[in-house]
Each structure stands twice: as structure tokens, then as C-alpha cells.
Design a protein around this nucleic acid. Sequence first.
DNA 1: AGCACGCCGACT
DNA 2: GTCGGCGTGCTC
Length: 736
Amino acid sequence: MNRSSSAPGFLRVAVFAPLRQTFHYLPCPTPWAWQPGQRVRVPFGKAQRLGIVLGLDPVPDRDPAQLKAVLEVLDPEPLLPASLHALLHFAAQYYHHPVGEIWATALPVLLRKGLMPFPPETCWGLSDAGRAQLQAGLKRAPRQQQALAFLAAQAGSTPESALPAAWGKGWKSLRDTCAAKGWICAQAPESRAPLQIPPSPFALNPDQTGAVAAIQAAQGFAPFLLDGVTGSGKTAVYLEVIAPLLAQDRQALVLVPDISLTPQLLQRFAARFGASQVAALHSGLTDIQRLAIWSRARRGELAVIIGTRSALFTPLARPGILIIDEEHDSSLKQQDGFRYSARDLAIVRARLENVPVVLGSATPSLESLHNARQGRFRHLILPRRAGNASLPQVGLIDLRRQALQGGLSQTLIKALRETLARGEQALLFINRRGYAPAILCHECGWVANCRRCSAPMTLHQGVRRLRCHHCGADHAIPAQCGNPLCGSPQLIPLGQGTEQVESVLRALPDLEVPIQRIDRDAVRRKGELEAALEEIQQGAPRILVGTQMLAKGHHFPQVTLVGIINADQGLFSADFRGQERLLAQVLQVAGRAGRAERPGQVLIQTHHPDHPLMQALRALDYGAHAEVLLTERELTGLPPFSALALLHAEAQQPPQTLEFLHDAARCLHHPELRAQGPLPAPMERRAGHYRAQLWLHAPRRETLAQALGPWLQAIEKLPSARRVRWTLDVDPVELL
DNA sequence: AGCACGCCGACT
DNA sequence: GTCGGCGTGCTC
């Protein structure tokens, strides 16, 4: 049907630009059956941009004579299924972010930038003969050798449009030669045959079996909170829930917070379902590889897709289930640009796809616990560790009036020695990298602060530098106090970081085991973390000193002692989520202890052993303290008992942010919305910019989402808005 | 976000 | 007399 000649309407396009509006274009020059979800190249101001056709409107919002025409249509069909159109539409409304940018972030980079025509196009892969030939080597034909090696490295089907760049001139004849010899084959976009999955090789315990049965019984959309202590075997539950779906040719999408734990998870899925059925979208992939996985998922050729936050937008031909592992983790919330929560959007997507969604965690977010209590989520509990592993013993070390050695108490050092003497491994957790979080003048108390941030600089002893962890500033260590009236040369480190703990341990007599530091400084390059983890798996006695990095999801069977060096940070945090975060973090680290046969021990150093949170940690009781925190939130009217959004502003001068936020507060007229502030941001100055924010409270998330729209329109017109950089964060998790 | 236009200071 | 500062406005 030639729809352009009969002028059925005007194309509504979401241009890839940070603008909260759509634009109309004439549907020339191609006669086309226009469908929402196709990419188009359009004239935009002086330049050209890509955008997405959102729909066809009979009447444009301005004089049709002023409209420009679409320059090019890039795709023969919509890129995403209708469910994802609806999801992105919802996200635009809920987060009040420009639709064009939302689409841009949802698409693989190569499609976002228009560097790749959209599949279905021919994809090439190695045949068995090609693999054999590559093994044997092609000494007389180096180009063919290189060509085969490239496809092998791409692992999977490589779109033909990637070949010119990879193979260079004459790629066509190279392709035809290799194809003629049967070394490479064009992979037909066919659906895979339903898989026959062997029964589970591991016996599940009754808790796990119950959880699997509950999830499998779900018909269509059903949200579950899988609340299982560390080591309770949540992954095994995921595997068994997915297995029968694959036999029905359906697909599973698994989101994890951090790339560092994808390899381990990928291995387990690949071992269960076959490597060719499972793909992980991790940071080590090239853009071409990502696009290949995306296309294969879209065509239904992959059974399981594992990925981080952005993988939520992977199209699935036949979705069967969505799984969000470590659902409490804040990295599921994007912290810049389009600030979405992959966990919250996953629930929306599951509803749109009409499939079950499982949120798994040992330390569920208060939001999810609340949803479970309200009956919105089905609460599945795994209270015991799987296999023979038992939960670790937890002890609190009262630091008050104790002599400390670089932050370590004698009790902890003694336990460390005993652990190593038994031939076991120990893990010390301290969530600060560097040697010390500040340096201080011993004479007058002056602290070396960052010039551009309201924060002290961190001492890095190894490289002998002072660094700001907020803006990246890097200076030599001053020789003397910066106070002009003092100038004393006596500058002393204040507090502890991983580097200091490492050096204190090295200085201990008769402690002849390797000490391995794991933080962003120690394992800077790609693969270094994996290499370190590999070595740890070997099992020889050693001490691991590390930050967050060490805590997430890793399995260290030989670690029997976990020491938390300073649990008090966050106890009296200004952030209302401080306690929830501290509780989750310490319990996640504690969960690394004794995951195999040998029992584990956790020692927590604190100056506040009587604090209820410390008592909860000692009892390893997340649930009870989470209830306490929930009650507090209810009394204070904070999320999840209300909805929160944050208007954040940054400018060169403090008055500019305040003027803007005051103006913004004045524009607010909604009866159910309450503005609080302007308040200085937790870090008042960062990278030379002054920062302040306005908090917006509403009784319900729906009210908030709905009221924010007109308010933002008013804000965008404010003259003061132009003098600041402002962002809106709906459901903020980090308060910036 | 880009990219124009536009009106005021220190320079060849 | 111009080069260029960034305030203001627009992008179908």
C-alpha cells in the first residue's frame, strides 16, 4: 500500500535529542508502509539526526507547510516488539525523560548511531569445516586465515555489514571464496528447536523445590520476591524455573547488577543449558558482538540472555520469564541521563509481556519487602544454606578503648592468625580505597581538601599522591600544612583505607602468607580481577583485603573468616537509606564466609556494639531489622510509604542554583505534591560546581508521576533554568 | 544537547 | 574598526 501518496498523516518522530517533545515530518520521499519503531534520518535544525517513528498523526501540531520530510528510512520493520514500545512509552511518562533519549539508550550503540542497517540481514558464522580449517591453519592464504579468525573471535553470527570494516577491500570475494569452500555459512534467521533439558544434576532442598513450584505454577504475569540468605541457592532456583520454559521454546532474561559476576553466572547457565543457548552482555564485548546477541535474542535464537541494567531492553521473540538477581543493588538504577530503575521497569515489562518476574536477594530492598507485605509480590523465602554449608558465626568487636594497629584490633589479628594456621583464607572488608581518606596537620588540625570539591583528598601512599575520589584531581603530597599561619611539616594520615590495611598486615611478624588487595587501584586493567579471583580459587592460605568489589556474589570456598574493619560508616549517615545500605552491604560480605563445608566466622569491628543495627548483624537477621527500618520510614513518611523525586541543580555560583530551585518550588501548585528545600546536596561542591536540590514528596508514585509533567513544562520555561544544569531523578536511590 | 544570532570589551 | 565572550532562542 502506498500510504505517502494518499497523505494519510504526518510522522510523529522521537528525535535522538534531549528534548521533551516529538516532531512531525512528512512521510516522503519513500512510499512506505510506515510503522512505529522504525528508525528514520531526519533534517533537524542545521544538521541531521536519527529518530524513531512513534506514530502517524492526522493533524500536525503546526502548519504542515513548515514541515520537513524524512530523509531516509533505515529499517524495513520495527526494531522492537510492541511490548517494548509500551515499556519505553511508560518510562518516558514515569521518569519524565525525553523519549528520543530513552529510545537511544534502549538500542544497541550501532543501531543508535545508525552505523548498521538493521537485521534481518545475512549473518555469517564459521561452519565446522571452517573451524577445522582455522585450526589446521591456512599458511598460503593469510587473508582467508584472518577472515576466519575474525568470525571465530566474534563467536556467533556476525552481520554482513560488519565485514567491510573487518576484512577490508575485497571482502566480497573473500566472503564468496570462503562460502564456496564451505568454511563459512550464512545463518538463516530460523527459530531454534525446542530444547530437551536434562533433569537437574543437583538435588534441591525442600525450600528451593517449593520456590520453584510456586514460580512454575504462575500463569502469565506474576511478581515474586525470592528472599534467600547468602548461599541458599537462588541460582539453582533460577535454573530450574527456566528449564521447562526452554523446552517450550521460550526465553529468559536475567539481569545482574554487576558485570564482574556475569562470568560465574554464565558458566552455570551454560553448563545447564548448553553454551550456544546462553549469552551474556558484559562490558568486554565489542559493539558488533552486542548487536549480534541482541539480534539473536530478537529472533528467538537465544534461550537465556544475561546482562546488566541496560539488557532489560533486549527484545525477546518469545519471552518466558524475567529474573532480577540482587534486586536490592543500587547499580540497577542508572545514575545519569535516563535515570531508570531496571528492577522497577522489569516489573512493568513482565506485566506487558504477561510473564512472571522474579526478584532475588539475600537482603531485599525495603521497597520490595513492602510490596511483599502488601501482597503485591509473592514472598518466597529460602531460610537455609544449600548443601552442607551452615551460616557463619558472627561476633562484634567492641573497638572502644582498644589499641588499634592501623585500624585492626588485636582480637581480629588473633583470629586472622588462627584462620591462616588452619590453612584457610581470610577476607578483610574496608570500603575505602587508598591509604587514608584524609591527611591532617598534627599542629593545627588543617585537612587537605580538594580545591574543587567539598571533600578531603585521599592519600595514596604507593604512588605518593593525594587524589580526589570525586573529581579525579591528583596532586603531590604537600610537604607542610596548608594553613599559612601554621606551615607545620607534621602531616598525618587520618583513618584507614585498603592500602593501609594491606601494609599493616605486611608489617606483622610471622605472617608469611600472600596478601591480595582487591580494589579499583589494585585491579585496574581488564582481566586482572578475574586472574586474582582465579588464584584465590586455588585455595592456598592467603588474606584478601578489598572493597565492595570483593563483596558481590563471588564464591570463595576457602574463606572462613570475614573481618569488617569499620562497620560504623553509614550508621549515622545523612542519607535516609544509609542504614539499609550498611545492613545489606555487611550481610553480603559476611555471606562470603564459610560457603563450603568448613564453618565460617564473621568479625565486625564497631564503636557501637549496642546499636540495634549491630545486634541485627550479629544475629544475621536481615528481616527483623528491615522491619524496624520500614517502621521508621512509615513514621517519617519516606519511601516506600511515599513517593520521592529530586530536582538537582548545579552551577558555578551558589545563588544560581538557589534562585532556580526557589523559582521551581514556586511553580508547584499540585495539592498533593510537597516541595522541600532548596537543600544543599550531600556534597555541596563537586568538580568546581555548587550543587543543591529540591525534594518532592507525594503520597503515591502515580500521583507523583502525573503531577511532575505539567510542573516540568513550567520549569523548562524559567529564565533561571538556563543558568544551571538541572536534572530530575524520580525514585532516587543515591541522593547525589 | 548543538548551533545559530546578538550585543558589549580588548586587540591586529 | 574587528574577534570573540556567552546569554537567549530554536530545532518539525
